[in-house]
Design a protein around this nucleic acid. Sequence first.
DNA 1: TTGAAAGCGCTAACAA
DNA 2: TTGTTAGCGCTTTCAA
Lengths: 341, 341
Amino acid sequence: MAVTLQQIAEKAGVSRGTVDRALNNRGRINAEVAENIRRIAREMGYQPNRAGRALAMSRHNITIGVIIQAADTPFMEKVLEGTMEAKAEVERLGASVIVEKIHGVDADQVVDTMQRLKEAGCNGIAMVPVEDDKLKETVNTFIGENIPVVTFNSDIEDTGRLCFIGQNALQSGKVAAGLMAEIVPVESKILIISGYPSNQSHKNRVKGFAGEMAACREDVKVLDVQYAFDDDKVAERITEEMLKEHKNLAGIYLAASGVGGVCKALDAKDLGGKVKVISNDLTVRNEECLRKGTIQFLLGQNAYVQGYEPIMTLFNKLFDGKEPEQEYAYTEIVIKNRYNL
Amino acid sequence: MAVTLQQIAEKAGVSRGTVDRALNNRGRINAEVAENIRRIAREMGYQPNRAGRALAMSRHNITIGVIIQAADTPFMEKVLEGTMEAKAEVERLGASVIVEKIHGVDADQVVDTMQRLKEAGCNGIAMVPVEDDKLKETVNTFIGENIPVVTFNSDIEDTGRLCFIGQNALQSGKVAAGLMAEIVPVESKILIISGYPSNQSHKNRVKGFAGEMAACREDVKVLDVQYAFDDDKVAERITEEMLKEHKNLAGIYLAASGVGGVCKALDAKDLGGKVKVISNDLTVRNEECLRKGTIQFLLGQNAYVQGYEPIMTLFNKLFDGKEPEQEYAYTEIVIKNRYNL
DNA sequence: TTGAAAGCGCTAACAA
DNA sequence: TTGTTAGCGCTTTCAA
């Protein structure tokens, strides 16, 4: 059996309350007595019982608020799945989680939701932020009021937010480059299709890809970046045009959405599997293309973890006082081919 | 706040004990009353509080025994890491975990250890088994005595063991084939180096690789399987010989250990990066070769999960009565290139 | 500065 | 068949 507070108390000849004060640095205790108790606890290998702690703490009514973009994409659905799992898990330990879905990328709405969550008694907030000054300000206000904020999926820089959980977009681009470098022939051309020029994460993927490609395959020419605005139709048109223009186009790196369009264009010319395609996000449709062989690799960003971890991070902070291990918790970059889906 | 037994009891006009009996099917209760209570619980969205449950159950002294091969390989060290993490986690909920490391692959020793763990009061066993009839018998005896057994890393067939947690070796071979098929040129030759002819998991990897290779790259010739007996020296010699014998050797698939030897042989002829190498296991030395570019891909089998999950699976079974979701819990097959290590 | 005691939600033994 | 109660390990309040 594990060591309990009571056992330590007996050995130290004091009461349970005193041991508690000593081990949790609650003050109101004689320094020597405290030191002695800590020594005994160390010697006995004391590990606090989480169940007992959770039960006693359940009076504190720890509440975590989550602000998440509406789950209208398969990716966000997967995120939400992780969120709901984490919610169930911490609620079984006596805490509460309030999930607020918002639609579109409206900073004001995010700010309003934060306020509402605070009024509802939230002790911590996890959210997918948008780039906005007023939002930054609000985040810092919350921090000042001792309400930690965790960002996930995208980050909001220069604030006191506790940590960010999401993908290292630059690294993701590099991983794609490493794959592409292995599978395209010498002296060939490669096309990059991105989403929005303004999107930070798309930008970083492209940067990582182009940089690494230049570094390890000097013979390959990377064409100017095209933007598909996450639109299959646009991606299809771009692909068609570039295929026409560049005879020896050997590979396409999709830094954002548009797989469907690219595949349609390739299949129409019977080039599926010939022109190598590497893309992002493990959506059902993307996986289909992978299985068919029209695309060669998909890079995943572990949506589930992105939904799950922020809540757990906040819970650990609020419940155990444990700070996250690092400020940037990058999720693993997952490589999928048709066999390990 | 979450719903409690007490709240249900009040609404149903009965006592907490009765609600407990109803929701946990403990019998000794009027069927109609029970049904009514269950309905109310459902309506109120009752979720049992894990902390309360854990605390009450801690009198049962749930003990889990783990039998693991000595941690003298980096892989097993990683497994052990997962084991220790899971141990800490369930012990913080009031259970106990006894980890027994054994040396070599001696069935008798495994059987002895199982007996010892039973005498020490273990209510469940997680282990890396070896193929042996006496061991099978012992496993079945334990099952008969209501002590569930979970196998991990390797499996033991035809017994009543609760489940197996580990890699799908056949699929791992296929994933490797999918990668190799993308990176070797037409009309080239590929070498397979396995470990032991008798090792089930090596055999399955080879089978998966060869089968899939034949299916998707008819132009490529797969040479006869060579065995390196997990020995770098042997792997090196094989590589040297085959390089001499086959001019257009384009790829090597290593189904077991020996990466160091293969790389040495390739580097000696300045063929690192030219002859494509795909291997298994994310050991430090292997990762080094990947970073240097001498090998192209490593397939991981998530050692940590293999150490962690068996304990959690047993704990869920013993604590919640929850059966594992599937009999074969295959760990994800992880693809690593030099950028996502 | 310390001790005593109540209570968190649940299980289980005992009493009715 | 049902109710009552003690107790799991911990936190926290109140009293000493």
